[in-house]
C-alpha cells in the first residue's frame, strides 16, 4: 500500500502572527516557516504504518511556492520516501488544493491519504472533506486512533462530547487530530540522507487544474485588544456586577 501525505508550509507555530499594515493578509516576509503541526502528525502516522509493515511507500505532497520544497524535505527526513511539489505562486484555496490532490491520488493510487485535520494558518478544515468527495472515497476526520487490517481502517474520531468509533473501507481519506501520536524528531543523519530522495515538481496546469482564487479577502484585522479587568472587594459585589452589569446570571 502507498500512503499519500499532503504537507503544508505555514508560519511556524512559535511565531507571533502580525497582520500586514494594509490589512490584506498576514505578514510572511522574513517570518520563520515550518510544516503544519497536524501534517507532522500525519507523516508520523504514515511512518508508523510503514514500520509496522502495513505500507510500502510514503509520498509527501506539498502545494505552493518553491520553498514548500523545504517542507517536503522535512517529511523526507522524518521517513517519507519521495516527494511531489505542485509549484505555484497563486494564493491557494482548499478547493484548488483538493483538486490537485485528487489528480495526484488518481495517478499514484494510494490506499490511504493521511492529512492534518486543518492548517494552523487559515484553520479552514475543508481540504480533506473536499478531497474525499472529489475522489468518491470514504472519509474519517479528527482521527485520534487508527488501526489498519483486512483492507479496512478502524478509527476513533474526536467529536463533541466524546469519541466516535468507525470502520471504513480503504482507500480512504483520513484527517488526523492532535492526540493521534507524538511526531518524532528527524535525526541528523536522516536530514542529510533526505537530500538524496527524489522530489518531482509540476504545476497545477500540468495536472489540468485551475487554481485561480474563487474567494476574495475583504480585510484582515487583528483581534480586538483585551480590555483590563477590575478587582472586586467581596463576593456580594461580584454577584451584583455579574447580575446587573454583565447580565450573565
Amino acid at each position: 500500500m502507498k500512503i499519500l501525505v499532503p504537507v503544508k508550509r505555514v508560519v511556524d507555530y512559535n511565531v507571533k502572527i502580525r497582520v500586514k499594515a494594509d490589512g490584506t493578509g498576514v505578514e510572511t516576509q522574513n517570518v520563520k516557516m515550518s510544516m503544519n503541526p497536524f501534517d507532522e502528525i500525519a507523516v508520523e502516522q504514515a511512518i508508523r504504518l510503514k514500520e509496522a509493515g502495513l505500507a510500502e511507500e510514503i509520498i509527501a505532497v506539498s502545494l505552493g511556492v518553491t520553498q514548500s520544497q523545504e517542507t517536503i524535505r522535512t517529511a523526507l527526513a522524518m521517513g517519507a520516501d519521495r516527494g511531489i511539489l505542485v509549484e505555484t505562486d497563486e494564493a491557494l484555496e482548499p478547493l484548488g488544493v483538493a483538486k490537485c490532490l485528487q489528480k495526484i491520488a488518481e495517478k499514484e493510487g494510494p490506499g490511504l491519504i493521511l492529512m492534518g485535520k486543518q492548517a494552523i494558518d487559515d484553520d479552514a478544515n475543508q481540504t480533506p472533506q473536499m478531497l474525499s468527495a472529489l475522489l468518491g472515497w470514504a472519509q474519517a476526520t479528527y482521527v485520534s486512533k487508527l488501526e489498519i487490517a483486512d483492507g479496512k481502517a478502524k478509527v476513533k474520531r474526536e467529536i463533541d462530547g466524546g469519541l466516535e468509533n468507525l470502520e471504513i473501507a480503504l482507500p480512504a481519506v483520513l484527517s488526523v487530530d492532535l492526540r493521534l501520536n507524538e511526531p518524532r524528531y528527524a535525526s541528523l543523519p536522516n536530514i542529510m540522507k533526505a537530500k538524496k530522495k527524489p522530489i518531482d515538481t509540476m504545476s497545477p496546469a500540468d495536472l489540468g487544474v485551475d487554481v485561480s482564487p474563487r474567494l476574495v479577502t475583504l480585510k484582515v484585522t487583528e483581534p480586538p485588544k483585551r480590555a483590563g479587568g477590575v478587582k472586586v472587594e467581596s463576593v456580594a459585589e461580584l454577584v451584583d456586577k455579574l447580575r446587573n452589569e454583565a447580565k450573565v446570571i
Binding site: 515550518s34 524535505r73 524528531y185 528527524a186 541528523l188 536530514i191 537530500k195
Partner: peptide, 18 residues
C-alpha cells in the same frame, strides 16, 4: 561542506530539540 539548505535544516532540528 553540506548543502546550505540541508545545513539550515540540521541547525533547525538541533535548535528545536534544545
Amino acid at each position: 561542506a553540506l548543502d546550505p539548505q540541508v545545513m539550515d535544516q540540521l541547525v533547525e532540528a538541533v535548535r528545536r530539540f534544545v
